[in-house]
């Protein structure tokens, strides 16, 4: 039983409620851009280095910047110790994360250089890739990379036969479906979509619409975090 008879989830949320989210921009002094995010029990640090010279040299692209992403879980981030070597899951997530961020960046503006995005999961909960993308996009803005839009991400899924927003750890593991989605909110374009589980077409549509709607709330938090650092939060975010 992950949802009780009153429709309340294990952590006290309703079906369409997000977990508490906290973001802080510019927390790492050495990085060109950085962002720390707490998303439910997720604690994630993102650092952006670049644009910078490419090593090894032969990897440089003559017409645009080389974007590299690494999603990595700290050994202590999970209940049982996680082997620090990158797993196949982490390699796949690193790839989809890069592909989720790339559409927002104008990489052609920085030929022959590289941008590295490091997403370090210090403590993991459900939805760490979405929280990671959300923080990484803000860290890229902090690094002052030319970008057309921010990228905001959230997962939806099915738990105890019901479509729910923002799956936590248990819901992620024991739920019937999980669908992480990332969009560029102003341009209204999908940059990440993954799905696992069983959904009818109608359920799929309902879940997807929920993701598209809810991601705007994440976007608002991203803007507030950037305003807080750059404009001392003194200007109201519309």
């Amino acid at each position: 039983m992950l949802i009780d008879e009153k429709g309340i989830r294990t952590d006290g949320r309703k079906w369409n409620e997000l977990r508490p989210i906290k973001m802080e921009v510019g927390v790492l002094k050495n990085a060109d851009g950085s962002c720390y995010i707490e998303f439910g029990k997720n604690k994630i640090m993102v650092a952006v280095y670049g644009p910078k010279e490419v090593h090894p040299r032969h990897m440089a692209l003559s017409d645009r910047c080389l974007l590299r992403c690494r999603y990595h879980m700290s050994p202590f981030s999970t209940t049982t110790r996680k082997n620090p070597a990158p797993s196949r899951r982490e390699i796949e997530i690193s790839k989809v994360l890069r592909e989720a961020l790339e559409p927002s960046l104008i990489l052609e503006d920085y030929p022959r250089t590289a941008i590295d995005v490091f997403v370090e999961i210090l403590q993991s909960d459900g939805g760490s890739r979405c929280a990671g993308i959300t923080a990484a996009s803000v860290a890229l803005a902090d690094a002052g990379i030319n970008m057309r839009d921010l990228v905001s991400a959230v997962a939806v899924g099915k738990v105890d036969g019901k479509i729910v927003l923002d799956l936590n750890d248990v819901e992620d593991k024991e739920g019937e479906a999980d669908m992480p989605v990332a969009i560029m909110p102003n341009l209204n374009r999908v940059t990440l979509f993954q799905f696992e589980g069983i959904l009818t077409k109608e359920e799929f549509e309902k879940a997807y619409e929920l993701a598209l709607k809810s991601v705007k709330k994440i976007y608002k938090i991203q803007r507030e975090a950037l305003y807080e650092k750059y404009f001392e939060g003194e200007v109201k975010v519309e």
Binding site: A141, M147, N186, L187, Y227, F231
Partner: peptide, 8 residues
Amino acid sequence: KYVVPGDL
């Protein structure tokens, strides 16, 4: 006006 990437 204060802006962030993607702001109209």
